[in-house]
Write a protein that binds this DNA or RNA. Structure first.
Lengths: 117, 117
DNA sequence: GATAAACGCAACCAGAGGGTTGCTTATGAA
DNA sequence: TTCATAAGCAACCCTCTGGTTGCGTTTATC
């Protein structure tokens, strides 16, 4: 019993510490990257750089951040590195937020029934 | 039309740019604070500091971050500042993650039906 | 084989972040 | 009124972050 709080541990996975995932999502550029990778296809760095107004190196850095948070996986194919979306961490983050909302709802209904009694 | 990607805009609110909310959640201490505030009660800074191994000033800074992200609201009552949970931003973040997952699922099923054809 | 494309590595920079300490101010309780 | 509690303000610290540039390396392509 020492997870970062949200009581009822929820159904699914363990989700050790969701903070790094949220931190990785806490940047507009990275959100765009995640979204673009959400199409299920593998994309090269050059591809992903296109449309974003920053250097390829900048994009690379962001991709490494996403990769370290487990949101994305990379593999070298020929002369390019292909990045693909990994769904699990976002599922985990989602269920974490679910548990927070649930906790909140429970607190509210308890409060309500207390007032009405 | 210039939101940070996820196509189908989703049902609910506008959710301008979810990045700041995720960034605010991207810290273990702040997650603990949010969770503790999720009980629906108002808590003073001293209360919230208790149990966390850092200074009251440190906690205050984190609370200001949460407040600026809209996750929390503060009001002065007597000599103490009371912080309370605000549910909307987390709802928004949740539905954003929903839209990402949905996009991913759609992509997968399209791929699958393409293979099978 | 020469050229171009796609990338990795390293250095560097300014600014934000997480944290502390010290001191002052407001408010409540004795 | 005096004393203790709760908090605000400001300065300071070090580290991480987002971004750049420059250059070297591998892989295609002509």
């Amino acid at each position: 019993m020492s997870s970062p709080e949200p009581g009822h541990a929820q159904a699914g996975r363990a989700l050790a510490d969701p903070a790094p995932v949220f931190a990785a999502l806490g940047d507009t550029t990275r959100l765009k990257l995640v979204s673009r990778l959400g199409d299920g296809q593998a994309h090269s760095i050059a591809q992903l750089t296109d449309g974003l107004e920053l250097t390829r190196q900048g994009v690379t850095k962001h991709l490494r951040v996403l990769e370290q948070a487990g949101l994305v996986r990379s593999s070298r194919v020929g002369r390019e590195s292909r990045f693909t979306y990994v769904p699990e961490p976002i599922e985990d983050a989602r269920s974490y937020l679910d548990s927070v909302s649930e906790q909140w709802d429970d607190a509210l209904s308890r409060l309500k029934s207390f007032i009405e009694s």
